[in-house]
């Protein structure tokens, strides 16, 4: 049983590391603010769930697991709120989201 949990948690940790890396790459590669926020939300949800879930499996039934669950729940509730606040502030300041297929010179001024 322990070995199954170990393997599962390793898989989750590895996948979490991959998703964190891809999210960071996306934040660098994407052409403007709103598309970058999609990459950031990738690391905020998927990667956070996988990494903290993987550690929780390693920790087992201890106080640490409850703390990790609280941290995860908190991250999942606050990160969309922060994204919403950021996006609406950017909209209100007059930064218009671009539409349509990607243009290569598409950096927002």
């Amino acid at each position: 049983m322990t070995i199954v949990l170990d393997i599962l948690s390793w898989i989750m940790l590895t996948a979490g590391g991959v998703f964190v890396f891809i999210g960071g790459l996306g934040a660098l590669r994407m052409p403007n603010l709103y598309t970058r926020m999609h990459a950031a939300s990738l690391t905020d949800t998927m990667a956070a769930v996988l990494i903290i879930g993987g550690i929780m499996l390693q920790a087992g039934m201890t106080l640490a697991t409850i703390k990790l669950a609280t941290i995860l729940l908190f991250l999942l509730f606050t990160s969309p709120t922060a994204s919403n606040a950021l996006a609406s502030a950017a909209i209100l300041s007059g930064l218009k989201p671009e539409e349509g297929p990607l243009r290569r010179d598409g950096d927002a001024e």
Partner: peptide, 14 residues
């Protein structure tokens, strides 16, 4: 833009 920097700061914190 300043919002890009703020987004990066938020990501860094997470």
């Amino acid at each position: 833009t300043i919002y890009d920097r703020l987004l990066a700061a938020n990501m860094f914190g997470t």
